[in-house]
């Protein structure tokens, strides 16, 4: 138990230094952007605002103070959980992120599970059937997917399943013209399917190729040779000797891929106008909503860290080999 505690403490310190640095760098970046925060806030009413009023707004927000003081003020608020008010939505950033996160997390979990399971199966099949046409086909498929733009897959999905076949709605998270309380779970799932499938299809390649490599290593080991000599074949062989050896690396890899998952979600959500975090990021960037953009950068960073931390912990504590090797 002591070991887990020390490991977590060390990781936490590192994560905190990184998060603080990310906050500082992104704060500097948006401060130096050509977009005037006052103009972005007021928008079309700019002509009605006199220079004196402008000055008052700037003073009220502390825009005249040195950047370092501004950063410290902002940082103090962030630590207390106050990320400011979003300019597009006119609501606290934390509320917007929370609401969007619920939508996004459903999408990402669905895609994460599906691409993990499907990729794992593909990798296992490819390795078990090594050097046959099945293997070559799976490899070709994975390498092609790795060079496919996510948003293009989304567009294809839209064209085929939403426009031509009409099986699924064209976009958004809920049906148009229906009151919030009348939206059923089924409606939500119908809107979720296409973005989730898009994300999953693209996410398969990495896990599949990695699992294939690992399983080929395992299959060329002495204990598998011995098992084969005893007459074990096919699924039994994989079940007894392969699965446990390749499942862990695959799971670790899936956790470490949170960053790509988030990036993919940004694109998929944009294509399907799905109201998640990714779409909010794009909106914030396009319309100069600085507080929301900063909040989202921090949030996505924490999200990636959680994934990496889980991956590290699995590597460190779940695998019996590394666990015993260090005691």
């Amino acid at each position: 138990m002591m070991k887990i505690g020390r490991f977590l403490l060390f990781k936490m310190i590192r994560i905190i230094t990184l998060v603080v640095a990310i906050c500082f760098i992104s704060f500097l970046l948006v401060k130096n952007s050509p977009i005037d925060p006052i103009q972005a806030y007021i928008g079309a009413d700019m002509l009605k605002v006199s220079p004196e009023q402008r000055g008052q707004i700037a003073a009220y927000w502390g825009l005249n103070e040195p950047v370092m003081t501004q950063f410290l003020n902002w940082g103090r608020a962030v630590i207390q959980g106050d990320l400011g008010t979003s300019m597009i939505y006119r609501r606290p950033v934390i509320d917007v992120i929370g609401e969007r996160f619920v939508n996004s997390i459903v999408l990402m979990i669905a895609a994460w599970l599906f691409s993990g399971v499907f990729g794992f199966i593909l990798g296992v099949v490819a390795a078990m059937k090594r050097n046959t046409w099945v293997d070559r086909f799976i490899q070709w498929y994975c390498y092609t997917l790795a060079s496919t733009p996510t948003f293009w897959v989304g567009l294809l999905m839209l064209m085929i399943f939403a426009v031509s076949l009409g099986w699924f709605p064209v976009g958004l998270g809920v049906p148009i013209g229906v009151l919030t309380e009348d939206v059923t779970i089924l409606d939500k799932i119908r809107h979720l399917v296409l973005p989730a499938v898009t994300l999953s299809i693209v996410g398969v390649a990495n896990v599949a190729l990695h699992t294939r490599e690992k399983l080929i290593d395992v299959l060329s080991s002495d204990y598998v040779l011995f098992a084969r000599a005893r007459g074990e074949r096919g699924l039994t062989l994989f079940w007894r000797h392969g699965l446990r050896n390749v499942a862990l690396p695959a799971i670790t890899l899936q956790f470490a891929a949170f960053s790509e998952l988030f990036g993919g979600a940004v694109l998929a959500e944009q294509v399907f106008s799905y109201p998640g975090l990714g779409q909010a990021t794009v909106e914030a960037g396009l319309r100069g909503d600085v507080p929301l953009l900063l909040g989202l950068v921090i949030f996505s960073t924490v999200f990636v860290f959680v994934g990496n931390l889980l991956a590290d912990m699995i590597y460190e504590f779940v695998d019996p080999r590394t666990r015993e090797g260090r005691i």
Binding site: I22, L29, V30, G285, V297, V304, F305
Partner: peptide
């Protein structure tokens, strides 16, 4: 390196692109 790997690529791109207009 860890710092740059910890922000999703696309989010970092959006941020930098936003800064440089």
């Amino acid at each position: 390196i860890d710092l740059f790997l910890s922000v999703p690529h696309l989010v970092a791109l959006i941020l930098i692109s936003f800064t440089l207009g």
